[in-house]
Simulated assay, not measured.
Amino acid sequence: MSTGLEGRSVIVTGAGSGTGRAAAVRFAREGAYVLVADLRRAAAEETVKAVAEMGGTALSVVGDLSDQRVVDQVVDTADEAFGGVDVLVHTAEIMDRLSVVSETDDAEWYRVIEVNLTAPFLLTRAVLPHMMAEGRGSIVFTAAEAGLRGSIAGAACTAAKHGVIGLVRSLAVTYLGVGIRTNAIAPGGTGTGFPGAAVSEVHGDNVLAPRFGGTGRVATVEEQAAAIVFLASDGAAHINGTVLPVDEGWSAA
């Protein structure tokens, strides 16, 4: 069955590795044109190479997406190279140190919120006029178990991921009438190579670390990517405002 993604323009953030790279490759396999956005040049270039080796089309833009200039470069590049933006996927994120509120310093709070919530907001805001002009679009965020409960991450990451879910629902309601769908996946444990929290704080470590582990095996990045591509595809045309746990039932336990 066709996913309807052939010839579509797709931006994937955090596409230099992990779930982002897997999603970029999967979109390309479906015939989409992919803009790889990542903070690391070498990683972004590796993803572009992986797409090219399978006969797909990808370009990269390198930079910090909390910088409006980088955001504008990403959107302008996709528009000029691929003729617009049909799909936006947010997978770029960082983890906190399992710091609870009393242990979270300003630097950790602001950086986690900046990367996990502000950057997706800025890029979404920049993409919306392009989607509205076409009368269609699909946006897929990465929430997390930390967006569904208060016991899986520190204060900063928990607040950011709850904010992501609020943003997803706001977008779903306010842009439905112009043909734009917004959804999110909420991954459980995933073998991304993503560095875990550097726990050192006594209270945060003692309270939160015992709650990790989920309810089964660790997911592959390809399984997370499959959920992302589905939500972006025509097969999910009537799905809007959904936060889809991809966690083998962890969130149901």
Rank of each mutant, 00 (worst) to 15 (best):
T192G: 04
G55S: 04
R169G: 15
V199Y: 01
T13W: 00
G213H: 09
D205V: 07
I180W: 03
V199W: 03
M131R: 05
A78G: 05
D106H: 06
G213R: 14
V140D: 07
E248N: 14
G163F: 05
I94A: 06
W250D: 14
P195G: 10
L59R: 15
P120E: 09
V199C: 08
I94E: 10
W250I: 04
A197Q: 12
H90L: 04
R97M: 06
D106T: 13
E108G: 10
A160E: 01
D72L: 10
L35E: 09
S17D: 11
A22P: 10
A52G: 13
E114Q: 14
A253C: 07
W250C: 00
M95D: 13
A133V: 06
V173A: 15
A184L: 04
D76V: 00
T19D: 00
D96F: 03
A44V: 09
T215I: 15
G214L: 07
S200L: 09
G249W: 03
G235D: 14
G163T: 12
G214S: 11
V70T: 15
P129W: 00
V202P: 08
A184F: 05
N116Q: 09
D38V: 03
A197K: 10
I139T: 07
A107I: 11
G214D: 12
I165N: 14
A24Q: 05
A146M: 10
F121K: 10
A144M: 03
L117S: 11
A159M: 07
A226M: 01
P120N: 08
V202R: 15
R8Q: 09
D79L: 02
G179I: 02
V218R: 14
M131V: 06
A42L: 13
D96N: 10
L59Q: 05
A159R: 09
D64G: 11
A58N: 08
E103M: 02
T242W: 08
T215L: 14
E6V: 12
G179Q: 04
E223W: 02
A32F: 01
E53A: 14
E93H: 11
V246Y: 09
A78S: 15
W250N: 07
E103H: 07
N240K: 01
A126V: 07
T142N: 12
R181L: 02
T47C: 12
G196E: 10
V115A: 08
T104Q: 06
I11S: 01
A28Q: 11
A143D: 04
V36F: 02
Y33K: 15
G249D: 08
D105H: 02
V202N: 07
L65D: 08
E108Y: 03
A172Y: 02
S233M: 07
V10H: 02
G18N: 08
G31T: 01
T3P: 01
N206Y: 13
V207H: 11
V75Q: 08
R26W: 02
S60Y: 05
D72W: 00
R169V: 02
R211P: 00
D38G: 04
A225D: 11
D76H: 12
G204E: 03
T215V: 14
M131L: 00
T13R: 06
Q68R: 14
I113S: 00
A225P: 02
T242M: 11
T19Q: 15
